[in-house]
Amino acid sequence: MSEYIDLVKRGGNEALRLNPAHGVDFHITKGGSDWLFAACAIFLTLAFVLTIMMFNKHVHERMPYYTAIAPTFSMAVAYFTMGSNLGWTSTQALYNRNRVSTQKTHLGFRQVFYARYIGWFLAFPWPVIQASLMGHTSLWHLAFNVFMTEVFVIAYLIGILVHSQYRWGYYTVGTCAAIIVCISVMTTTRRIVKRKGGELFKVFTCFYGVIMFFWGIYPLVWGLCEGGNVLVPDAEGIWYGALDCLLLGVMPSLFVAIAGYFGLDTLGYHFEDEESALPPPPAPKSPSSSPAAKGLKKKFKKSKK
């Protein structure tokens, strides 16, 4: 019985014990790590369910699944890393909003996760790509939107590593890039979808209106967490985790259902069976009709004579 009790005591989340946060004053606690692992489980569940559903579809019907599986798998890896208390660095807080008893400097050092931004770099473009798929926009328009989305992520990443007031310059650049993408999707792409009219236009407006609303909360959270040091890292993980699960998990998965409801033909995508378009393979020649076989026959006849 005592061995069982010892086993239970050793169980649970031991990430902070195995990977302690040294050299920082403000860092996640066990509760924060538990939430990060829970968010990882949500992303993994969505990713595996979508993958199983994808393999039950014909290869020409899998495109919507690709756009949802990519962000969910990317964020699952990012949240597993953060829940394990890995993929972070320290940066000195710009404002003295929080204090701890072990703080040695006037402005303490805060734990910031660059793993989150790597996940964002891989996952954030996919809702934009899904918008372009609904509008069937040009490749150059899609590439521009994806590029500006990556500028948003990179600018925010550099901002968390800057101690001085210059971090707000990167914050401004990243926020402007996000605004440009939102305007591009809700104007150019929306006009293209409007030409198709009907129910698709209404669904697009509502669906991407919700996505832009979620995206608009990120600058507020960044300013209160990594930027202004108002919220502690646990609260930061809760805010970002909820937003990421909704924007980069639930909404891409809903796009799969929307694409399945309208069909890829309605969205403007017609995939041909490449194998059926290829010419039929040449019929195999019989061994007796090959030149080598004919030569052997002649030699065989001469030897008989």
Rank of each mutant, 00 (worst) to 15 (best):
G174V: 01
G174M: 00
W140N: 14
M186F: 09
T188V: 14
A155W: 00
I180M: 12
R167M: 10
E150V: 01
V162H: 03
F113V: 00
A143C: 13
R167L: 10
Q130M: 15
I160L: 10
I217F: 11
C206Y: 14
G108C: 07
Y208I: 08
F147G: 06
I158Y: 05
R191G: 02
V153S: 01
Y156A: 06
I211V: 14
G174Q: 00
C206P: 11
T175L: 04
I158E: 02
C182I: 13
Y156N: 13
A178V: 01
F213I: 12
K196W: 03
V181C: 05
L107G: 09
I158W: 03
M134K: 07
A155N: 07
V162C: 05
G198F: 02
M134F: 13
C176E: 03
I154F: 05
I180P: 05
H106F: 13
I192S: 11
R167Y: 04
I180F: 12
G159A: 15
G169L: 11
S138W: 08
G119F: 00
G135Y: 04
L200M: 10
Y208F: 15
T189C: 12
G135W: 05
G135F: 06
I192G: 06
V181F: 05
Y171Q: 05
G108P: 11
I118N: 08
